[in-house]
Computed example of a mutant assay.
Amino acid sequence: MNNYKMIVFLDSLRAGHAYLELLKPGEQQGETFGFYPAKADEKKEVLFGKGSVRKDAERLESSGKDSKIRQTGKTVHLTKSEFDQAVAFIEKQQRKPNLYFLVGYNCIDFIQNVLQAAMGKDAPSFLELYDHAELEQLSWVGVYARIEKVMGAGTSKLEF
């Protein structure tokens, strides 16, 4: 049995966000990672600009007090090797992140690329883990996810 886990989350905070949590065997809480525009406070870079892989723990703690946030997570079981490959991909992206492009390479595409780095051709499309009703409740990230689901998830693989 694979005791390593990647939990893929979608939430409704502001425009919505996708992020993941990596858990080793026996852990109740792991490290969380998401992909963002590096300068989220500058309007032009919210749409396009340098990207940044961040640990989501601080954002989750501050937004966790808001009971209006809808959040749903789906678990993907990993082998130790797959887990290590996911960590290696995330670390590489932390050192040299892709460009962030709201409608081209965003938090959803980052998660799909982590899954593919870990599991290769056997990686599920994480959007297939969510049904239409779940996506509909999740702000703009749900709209984007539904579009990606129809057009083919994981098609954005920009590496610079």
Rank of each mutant, 00 (worst) to 15 (best):
Y4S: 03
D11C: 13
R14I: 14
R14D: 13
A15S: 10
A18H: 03
L23Q: 09
E27W: 04
E27D: 15
Q28Y: 14
G30V: 03
E31S: 10
T32H: 13
F33Y: 15
F35Y: 15
F35I: 13
F35H: 06
Y36D: 00
P37H: 07
D41N: 14
E42Q: 12
V46R: 14
S52G: 00
A57P: 00
L60Q: 12
K68N: 13
I69Y: 01
R70H: 12
Q71W: 02
G73T: 04
K74R: 14
K74Y: 02
K74C: 02
K74L: 06
S81I: 02
S81D: 14
F83H: 09
Q85R: 12
Q85C: 06
A88T: 08
F89G: 07
I90D: 09
I90M: 11
I90F: 09
E91F: 06
Q93G: 08
Q93S: 12
R95G: 11
R95I: 04
R95S: 13
K96I: 06
Y100T: 08
V103G: 11
V103C: 10
Y105T: 02
N106I: 00
C107T: 06
D109R: 04
D109E: 07
F110M: 04
I111T: 12
Q112S: 04
A117I: 12
A118S: 13
G120M: 08
K121D: 10
S125F: 01
S125T: 01
Y130C: 03
D131K: 12
A133I: 06
A133C: 05
L135Q: 05
Q137F: 05
W140F: 13
W140G: 06
G142I: 00
Y144I: 02
A145C: 03
R146I: 00
R146E: 01
I147A: 08
K149D: 04
V150S: 09
K157L: 08
L158A: 10
F160D: 08
